[in-house]
Structure formats: structure tokens, C-alpha cells
């Protein structure tokens, strides 16, 4: 979706502010939110792209105003309710009011390391890769209202395939409950001026990781 999350190239947000000696969490609740998200992911409640989409779909003013882990909490709550794991009246009550909807598994203290190890996104290929390093490609001019990982600034642009990363679960399909729909993944590199025009820094090159459906041969 063309949401507020798709920030690449926007102006006006100001200087990057660095905090010296920043702690992992600024407040205790932030760590709890991260850990709950991790545990629910391990349990199979939803996929990482569902988490991303739930945040992208927040009203833009909420997205911008929320601190990072609060945005996670809002997205998590949205997914919990929409997917029938928790009901709004339970959130209001602060307690479970009815039995749980079963989940495939549960993250317990004895398997925490497994829960913290990043899962693999490699999937069995459905067809040979259409592109190879060195191919000139054009990104699609697409504007789906659902989740996509093709940023707006990189749509309808001419680039070069640089790397092939194998066949991966396709976020656009995963986040619309259409399954993994495995697709080849490529690093595609663009000249700065292809993206930002003649005034761009001539030494700038930008790459995205693009799934095959985002690309056509140029």
C-alpha cells in the first residue's frame, strides 16, 4: 500500500538524532512487546509480513506519532483481534473472557534459543529464475492497496540485476493469506539519477532486493 511507512526519499523529517550509549530498551514495556511479538511469531499466530502490514495500515497520523515499540503493540493488537485470538472486550477488560483459539506451538523458556533464531525464508523454486546478474530490468509500476516490498521511489525504474538470493516466500502473497507463493529474489541496483533525476549525487547508487514479480526485462 502507498502508506506513510514507505518513507524513502521523503523530505522534511529533519536531522538524524543519535543517542549516545543507547540502551536496548528505554522502558520495560518495550522489551515485553518485543518478546510477545517474538513468541507469537514462533507460535505461528501470523507471519512477519502480517506484522508489517498491520503497522502500515495504521492511520498515518498514528504511525508517525507512535514510538517504535508502541507501533508494534498497536499492530500486534490489531492482528490479535482481526485473527480471532483476542476480542476487543477482552482488551477492554484486561483479562481473557473466553477460551483460546489453538496455535500450532508455544514458545516456552526451554526453547527460547529456537524462538530467537531467525527462520529461513528460502522456499522450493516453482520455475527457473528469469533473470541473471547483469540483466537490465525495469521495475513494475504497481500500486497495490495491500502489502508490498517494492518501495514507491523504486517503481518504474531502470536498474541492473546484481545478485540472486535464491527463491523466497513472497511477502505480497503471504500478507494477503495467499500462502508462500515462492519467488526468486534479486538485488537490483539503480543509478542515483535514475531515481532522483539529474540533480542527484553522481556518486550515488541505490539497491533494493526485488522479488521477480516486481521486475521485467528492459
Amino acid at each position: 500500500m502507498n502508506g506513510i511507512h514507505d518513507m524513502g526519499g521523503m523530505d522534511g523529517f529533519g536531522k538524524v538524532e543519535v543517542e549516545a550509549n543507547e540502551p536496548p530498551f528505554h522502558e520495560r514495556w518495550e522489551g515485553r512487546v518485543l518478546a510477545m511479538q517474538r513468541a507469537l511469531g514462533y507460535a505461528g499466530a501470523w507471519h512477519i509480513d502480517d506484522s508489517r502490514f498491520s503497522q502500515e495500515a495504521l492511520p498515518p497520523q498514528t504511525y508517525l506519532a507512535a514510538s517504535y515499540y508502541w507501533r508494534w503493540a498497536l499492530g500486534m493488537q490489531k492482528n490479535l483481534i482481526e485473527r480471532g485470538f483476542v476480542a476487543a472486550d477482552e482488551i477492554a477488560a484486561g483479562h481473557a473472557l473466553r477460551p483460546a483459539k489453538p496455535l500450532p506451538r508455544k514458545l516456552t523458556a526451554d526453547v527460547v534459543q529456537a524462538g530467537m533464531t531467525r527462520s529461513s525464508f528460502f522456499r522450493q523454486q516453482q520455475a527457473p529464475a528469469r533473470f541473471k546478474p547483469g540483466d537490465r530490468v525495469r521495475t513494475m509500476n504497481i500500486h497495490p492497496q495491500t502489502h508490498t516490498r517494492l518501495p514507491r521511489y523504486a517503481r518504474d525504474k531502470l536498474g541492473t540485476v546484481e545478485l540472486i538470493h535464491g527463491c523466497h516466500a513472497f511477502p505480497d502473497s503471504v500478507a494477503t493469506d495467499r500462502g508462500d507463493d515462492p519467488q526468486w529474489l534479486y538485488t537490483v541496483v539503480f543509478d542515483g539519477c535514475e531515481i532522483w533525476g539529474a540533480d542527484a549525487d553522481p556518486t550515488l547508487k541505490i539497491s533494493i532486493d526485488a522479488f521477480e514479480p516486481y521486475l521485467e526485462l528492459a
Binding site: 510477545m36 513468541a39 507460535a43 481473557a96 483460546a100 496455535l103 508455544k106 516456552t108 523458556a109 527460547v112
Partner: peptide, 12 residues
């Protein structure tokens, strides 16, 4: 609801 184990959250 049994979805999370607080001890596992502590460990994370």
C-alpha cells in the same frame, strides 16, 4: 489464554 509463557518472555 496460553499463547505466551512469561518465563520465555523474560529470557528473550
Amino acid at each position: 489464554k496460553g499463547y505466551v509463557d512469561p518465563a520465555a518472555l523474560d529470557a528473550i
